[in-house]
Design a protein around this nucleic acid. Structure first.
Lengths: 193, 193
DNA sequence: TATAAAAATGGTCACATGACCAAAAATGAG
DNA sequence: CTCATTTTTGGTCATGTGACCATTTTTATA
C-alpha cells in the first residue's frame, strides 16, 4: 500500500478486504485475483490497484486483519475463566467455518513464505501465552515447562480439531465428552507425576 | 487421464507427478501449472497434457498418490507396537517436511472442494482405524466410544503438531517430554473414570 | 517385418491476469 | 471559494496459461 488515505479510502479498503476474504474462502488462493475482487465490488481494476499493489499485498492484508481480529477475540476474554470454558469457547466460537478456511490457506502459505511464517509465529506466540495463563490459573503449582507443553498440546489439539471440522463423514464424537476428555488430559499432564 | 499407457507411460507419469509435487511444495497451489511442470522436465506442454487433462487432474493425481503412500506407510507397520511407539513414529517419520506441506495444500483444497474432501475423509477414516487399533491393543478394556474419542484426539494432535512444525520460533518443547505427556493423556482418557 | 497403438513434437489460439499510464471527478482543508 | 489531495475512471499492454489440433517418431506385438 504505502498510500495516504482518508476516511472514504479506509472504508474502501475494508470493502475490498471483505470481498477478497470471501473469494479466498470460496475459491482459495488460486482463485483470488485483483480483477475478481474488483468485479465483485463493481470497481475498476485500477481502483483496487490504487489501494493494493498486487495480489500478494492483498493476501497479506487479509491475513493481517484476520489475525488481529482473532487475537482480539481471545485476549479480551475474561481472564478468570477455567480450562473447560476455554475449550468450549475455542471449539465452538472462534473457529467459524470461514475463518477456519482462511487459516488453512494461511498455513499453506506459511509453509513456503517466510513473511507469512513470521506473522503466524507471532500470532501463535500470543495464543500460547493465553492458553498458558488459563491453565496456570487452574493449576498454579504447575511448572513453566509443564505449562508450556500443555499449551502446545492444547493449541495443536485445537488446530487439529479445526482441520477435521468439515471433513465429511468425520468424527461423530460427542462434543461434551470430547471436552471432558481434553480437560482430563490436561490434568494428567499438569498434575505432578 | 483416461488414457491407455504402457510401461514407459507409467514411468513418465511418475516423473511428471514427482516434478509437480516438487513445484507444489515449493510454490503452492498457485504456483503449479502444466507448463511449469513441463518446463521442469524439459518436456512439451502438450506432452504433459497427453497424460493429464489439466492442472486439476494433475493436482488430484498428486494427492491420490501421496495419500496412498501415506496409508501404506502406517498400515504396514507391525501391529503389535504400543502407543508410545506410534507417537514417536508419527511425530518423527511420517511427517517429512515436504509431505507436511502437501497436506497443508490438501487441507486448504478440501475446505472448498467436495471431491478432495471425500478423498481426505476416506484417508482419515483408515488412519483413525489404525490409531484405534493401536490404543485398543494397549487398553483392551476401553469402550468403543472411548477409543474413538481417543483416536480423534490423537489424530488432531498429530495434525496440529505437524502444523506447528516449521513455524518459526515455535514450540521449543522437548520431544521426549511431549511424547510422555501424550501417552499420559491417552491413559487419562481411556482408563475408566 | 508390418502395423496399430503409444509416446512425443511443434505449434496456434483465446483468454485472464496484473503492470502501468493518463486523466477526470470528488473531496476537504484553508 | 480555491486548490491540493484523494478517489475514481478508462484504457493499453505484455505475459503466462491451458485448450486444442495436426503431425511425427517410437514402441510393442502379431
Amino acid at each position: 500500500m504505502a498510500r495516504r488515505t482518508g476516511a472514504k479510502g479506509q472504508r474502501r479498503i475494508e470493502e475490498i478486504l471483505d470481498a477478497a476474504e470471501e473469494i479466498l474462502v470460496e475459491a482459495g488462493y488460486g482463485g483470488l485475483s485483483m480483477r475478481g475482487v474488483a468485479d465483485r465490488l463493481g470497481l475498476r481494476l485500477s481502483h483496487v490497484q490504487y489501494y493494493f499493489d498486487g495480489p500478494d499485498a492483498l493476501l497479506e492484508a487479509i491475513f493481517d486483519r484476520s489475525l488481529t481480529r482473532s487475537i482480539e477475540v481471545f485476549e479480551t476474554r475474561p481472564k478468570r475463566e477455567g480450562i473447560e470454558a476455554m475449550v468450549a469457547f475455542v471449539l465452538e466460537d472462534q473457529l467459524s467455518a470461514s475463518n477456519c478456511r482462511m487459516f488453512f490457506e494461511l498455513w499453506a502459505l506459511a509453509a513456503r513464505d517466510d513473511k507469512a511464517n513470521a506473522v503466524l509465529a507471532r500470532y501463535y506466540a500470543r495464543y500460547q501465552s493465553y492458553v498458558e495463563s488459563i491453565v496456570a490459573s487452574e493449576y498454579p503449582q504447575a511448572k513453566p515447562a509443564q505449562l508450556k507443553r500443555c499449551a502446545v498440546i492444547l493449541m495443536s489439539l485445537f488446530e487439529g480439531l479445526s482441520l477435521f471440522r468439515g471433513v465429511e463423514g468425520r468424527i461423530a464424537v460427542s462434543r461434551r465428552e470430547l471436552d471432558k476428555d481434553i480437560v482430563k488430559a490436561v490434568r494428567a499432564i499438569v498434575e505432578q507425576s
